[in-house]
C-alpha cells in the first residue's frame, strides 16, 4: 500500500527536533485526519490543537511544506498534488511562539490586538432604548471581516511580521480594526485607526500572502488599502508611506509615468535623501540606471489621463 511520509517538527519545551511517521495513504481525507491518525494510532504524545472540524473554531492551522493551511478544511490529496510528493513536513505556524509540537501561543497576539480597541465604541446615533439598527448595506460592510476565525494562517505567511514581530500588526488584527472602523454603529473610527497607523501600517509589503492563504477568503489587502486611504483622509499624509503613494499618483497625473529619479526625494524629502541615499544614487548613476539630467516627457494622451483624474474626483463626491 502507498504510504505518506510525515515529518513533524516536535518541541518539548526545551528542544526541537523532527520526527518521522509513515501513514498508509487513503483517498479523500483531510490534513486533520492525517494528524489525528498519527496521534491515535502511532504516537499519543504528539500535540496539536483542533476542535470543530468545520473551519469555524480556527484552532488547527499548521505549516505544511512551507505554507500555512487550516488542517480541517484542507484536502490531503490537494496538498500531495500541490507539492507533487508523498513527503510532508509539518511545522507550527510561523511568527508565533510555540508551546509544544504544533501548538502555538495566542495570548501575546490577543494582548497586541487590544491596541486597536477591538470593540464597538457606540455612536450617538443609537441608544439602549432604540437599539443600534443597521441597514442591509451597512451590515454587508462587516460581513466579510467578521468571517475571520482567528486561525493565524495570515500571520504565519506575513512577510513583514517575519522580520518585524514587535512593530507590525498581524493581518487578522488589521482585519479586526477594519471591522470596527466600517461598522455603522461605531462612533469613533479614529480610535481604531490611529493605533493601526502608529503600528507600522505603511510597512505592509504588498506581498499578497495573507489574502492568498486566508481560508475564509477575506479581502485583507483591500482592507489594508482602505485603512491607508482612511489615515490619509484623517490628515496623516506627512509620512513616508503616504508621500510615496502620492509620488506615483501625482507623477501619473503630471507626466503619465513615474519619475524614478525624483521618487526618493518626494518620499523622504531632500535632506533625508541626501543623508541616506547618496551611495545608492551614485551606484545607480554609475551604471546608467539613473540619469539625473533626464526628465521624463509627457506621454501622448496626458490630457485624457487628467480627465480620468477629474472623473475619479467627481465619482468620489
Amino acid at each position: 500500500m502507498e504510504k505518506i511520509t510525515v515529518k513533524i517538527k516536535r518541541f518539548d519545551g526545551r528542544e526541537s527536533y523532527y520526527q518521522k511517521y509513515e501513514v498508509p495513504y487513503e483517498k479523500g481525507k483531510t490534513i486533520l485526519w492525517l494528524l489525528t491518525m498519527i496521534r491515535e494510532e502511532q504516537d499519543p504524545t504528539l500535540n496539536f490543537t483542533s476542535a470543530c472540524r468545520h473551519a469555524i473554531c480556527g484552532s488547527c492551522a499548521v505549516q505544511i511544506n512551507g505554507n500555512a493551511f487550516l488542517a480541517c478544511n484542507t484536502s490531503l490529496d490537494e496538498v500531495l498534488d500541490t507539492y507533487k510528493t508523498m513527503n510532508l513536513t509539518f511545522e507550527p505556524l510561523k511568527n508565533f511562539d510555540v508551546i509544544k509540537d504544533l501548538v502555538i501561543v495566542w495570548e501575546p497576539k490577543m494582548e497586541k490586538m487590544e491596541k486597536v480597541k477591538p470593540w464597538i465604541i457606540p455612536s450617538e446615533k443609537g441608544s439602549n432604548e432604540h437599539g443600534f439598527l443597521q441597514s442591509e448595506e451597512e451590515f454587508h460592510q462587516i460581513a466579510a471581516p467578521t468571517d475571520c476565525i482567528l486561525c493565524g494562517v495570515c500571520a504565519s505567511e506575513c512577510n513583514q511580521l517575519a522580520v518585524n514581530q514587535e512593530g507590525y500588526l498581524e493581518p487578522f488584527i488589521l482585519n479586526r480594526a477594519y471591522r470596527y472602523i466600517v461598522d455603522s454603529r461605531d462612533g469613533s473610527p479614529q480610535d481604531h485607526l490611529q493605533p493601526v497607523l502608529e503600528n507600522d501600517l505603511w510597512k505592509c509589503l504588498h506581498c499578497m500572502q495573507c489574502v492568498s492563504q486566508c481560508p475564509k477568503s477575506i479581502p485583507l489587502t483591500d482592507q489594508i488599502a482602505y485603512l491607508r486611504s482612511s489615515t490619509m483622509q484623517m490628515g496623516a499624509v506627512n509620512n513616508q508611506g503616504a508621500k510615496h503613494a502620492y509620488a506615483f499618483h501625482d507623477d501619473v497625473k503630471n507626466k503619465g509615468r513615474l519619475n524614478e529619479t525624483m521618487l526618493p526625494i518626494k518620499t523622504d524629502g531632500l535632506v533625508q535623501t541626501a543623508l541616506t541615499k547618496i551611495p545608492f544614487a551614485l551606484r545607480m548613476i554609475k551604471k546608467g540606471k539613473i540619469n539625473p539630467l533626464h526628465m521624463p516627457k509627457q506621454i501622448s494622451g496626458i490630457h485624457e489621463v487628467r480627465r480620468l483624474y477629474e472623473y475619479a474626483e467627481e465619482v468620489k463626491s
Binding site: S229, M232, Y246, F248, G301
Partner: peptide, 13 residues
C-alpha cells in the same frame, strides 16, 4: 501613451 500601472500604490489613495 501607456501610463504607469500604479505600482501597487495608487489604490491606497
Amino acid at each position: 501613451g501607456w501610463t504607469c500601472c500604479g505600482a501597487s500604490h495608487i489604490q491606497d489613495i
